[in-house]
Amino acid sequence: MSAVILIPARYASQRYPGKPLAELRQPDGSRKSLIRMSWEAACKVPGVDAVHVVTDDDRIADVAKVFGASVIMTSPECENGTARCADALTRATLDADIIVNLQGDAPLTPPWFVEALIDEMRRNPSASMATPVLRLDRETYGHFAEDRKNDRVGGTTAVFDKDMNALYFSKEIVPYLDPSKLPEGPLPVFHHVGVYAYTPEALTAYGSWPQGPLEGVEGLEQLRFLENGHKIRCVEVDGRGRVFWELNNPTDVDRIESVLRTLA
């Protein structure tokens, strides 16, 4: 089964305008744009036939072309990354069995996270969509709790059934844990990593559905699939000691740069 990675990127982010072009300091002192780092992360995934940046903004497209990325221009009406990927699928007539959506704000995504999704789709032909979940360590749980305490939208959490099918995704920490009674062992909270693998049919169906009330209040595009009775397979991944964090707010720049220093 062939697979391609799409990296949706928009300039007009409400929380962080121009985010894809934000430059992060590398361990050697140089700086790289967020979109370039995300593209480089995608290029490290084995078994992928192509990687494309998908955007409606010429500024992002121009920067991406300079560092060698293939670019697919999409409609400015795309309201989120999944809609942008669906639009790119139509405009570029992509010939692939698996479409991977690697968000342009997740440069710390290890290649094995994406590889695990592709492997899951290849092992289970009945699966039409998959996404990775990562059990929170105490440090990352602390980041989540700090963000919520300060009314910042940080990472997303996921809950799923015994068969690893998603039950819900939220920008709140679910399930709720009493801060004074955290369990001694592994925490039962999973970070939803913002990567998706879809069949072309599932991605096309998304574009035909209107936004539902849960997607509207949470601002999470994957909820549209659940609201329409469409299963999402959660794939637990192992961070292998690496801290994973997305760039959601300007305050996340320092967090990500500190992780980059540990990887040098």
Rank of each mutant, 00 (worst) to 15 (best):
L21I: 06
E40H: 06
I60M: 02
D62R: 15
T74R: 04
P27A: 08
A69W: 01
V63N: 15
E77K: 11
A42L: 04
C78V: 11
P20H: 01
G18W: 09
E79H: 13
Y16S: 12
F67L: 02
Q14M: 10
K44N: 14
C43A: 13
E79D: 14
A22K: 05
E40V: 03
D28P: 13
L24G: 06
Y16F: 15
A69G: 03
I72H: 01
I60F: 08
M37N: 07
V66T: 13
L21K: 05
A41T: 02
R15C: 11
W39V: 09
Y16A: 14
Y16V: 12
S75R: 04
R36Y: 11
R25N: 11
T55C: 01
L24D: 05
D28G: 12
G29P: 10
Q26F: 00
D57I: 04
R36K: 14
D62T: 15
G47F: 02
P27Q: 03
V54F: 03
M73V: 00
E23M: 12
D56W: 14
V66M: 12
M37C: 06
E77T: 13
V53R: 01
R59P: 13
V53S: 00
K65A: 09
C78K: 10
D57G: 10
Q14G: 10
P27S: 02
D56N: 14
K65Y: 09
E40K: 04
K44R: 15
A61C: 08
A64L: 02
E23Y: 11
E40A: 11
E77F: 08
R31S: 14
D57K: 08
W39M: 07
D28M: 08
P17A: 03
E79M: 13
S13H: 12
E40F: 08
V45S: 03
G47S: 04
V51I: 03
V51P: 00
I35E: 11
T74P: 00
V45Y: 02
L21E: 01
W39N: 02
G18H: 07
D57P: 09
V63L: 15
V45P: 06
P27H: 05
E23D: 07
A69P: 02
A50W: 09
L21N: 07
A42C: 06
D62F: 15
P76T: 10
K32C: 13
V71S: 05
L21A: 10
C43S: 11
K44F: 12
G18T: 06
F67R: 03
G18D: 03
A61G: 13
R59A: 15
P76C: 04
A41G: 07
H52R: 08
K32P: 11
G29H: 09
D49M: 00
L21Q: 05
A22V: 05
K44T: 14
S30V: 10
P20L: 00
S75L: 05
C78N: 14
A64C: 09
C78E: 09
P20V: 01
S30P: 08
V45E: 05
W39F: 10
C43T: 13
K32V: 11
S13T: 07
E77C: 05
L34V: 14
D62L: 15
M37Y: 05
D57N: 14
C78W: 06
S13I: 11
M37T: 03
P17G: 00
T55K: 02
K19H: 10
T74V: 12
